[in-house]
């Protein structure tokens, strides 16, 4: 809703809990969207080195690519700004109804 989404906030808590449990964690945040991208700026996804995922940055279209980038970020420690056009062929192949473009910032939880 207009304020802090309970949802987006839960992702930060989940990320903190995972790290407290000894997991290496990266956080992906939607910074900008154009067109019909389903998630708003500020939407978050947390990813662990072991492959756990919480939250969403696109409603399913680019989560796999973002998770892969997040895990790479856990290894290198270097943050990354990713740009996606989510009308690409791969999205269509898996039957996702997605449009628009989205920028996602991926960083390690330190």
């Amino acid at each position: 809703m207009g304020g802090i989404g309970g949802d987006a906030d839960d992702i930060l808590q989940i990320a903190a809990d995972w790290q407290a449990a000894g997991e290496a964690v990266a956080i992906a945040t939607v910074t900008a969207t154009w067109g019909s991208s389903p998630q708003r700026p500020g939407s978050r996804m947390a990813v662990t080195r072991s492959g756990k995922i919480a939250g969403s940055v696109s409603g399913g279209c680019i989560e796999t690519a973002v998770a892969t980038a997040a895990q790479r970020c856990i290894e290198t420690g270097a943050p990354q700004l990713l740009d996606f056009g989510v009308t690409d062929e791969r999205a269509r192949e898996v039957g996702l109804v997605c449009g628009g473009k989205v920028s996602v910032f991926v960083e390690k939880l330190m």
Binding site: I4, T31, R40, P41, G42, S103
Partner: peptide, 20 residues
């Protein structure tokens, strides 16, 4: 919430007002 250009720097600024 969004990206702003401040000088030559790009900042993502997230407004975090209290939840309803």
């Amino acid at each position: 919430t969004g990206v702003l250009l401040i000088g030559a720097e790009s900042w993502f600024i997230e407004a975090r007002n209290p939840a309803p």
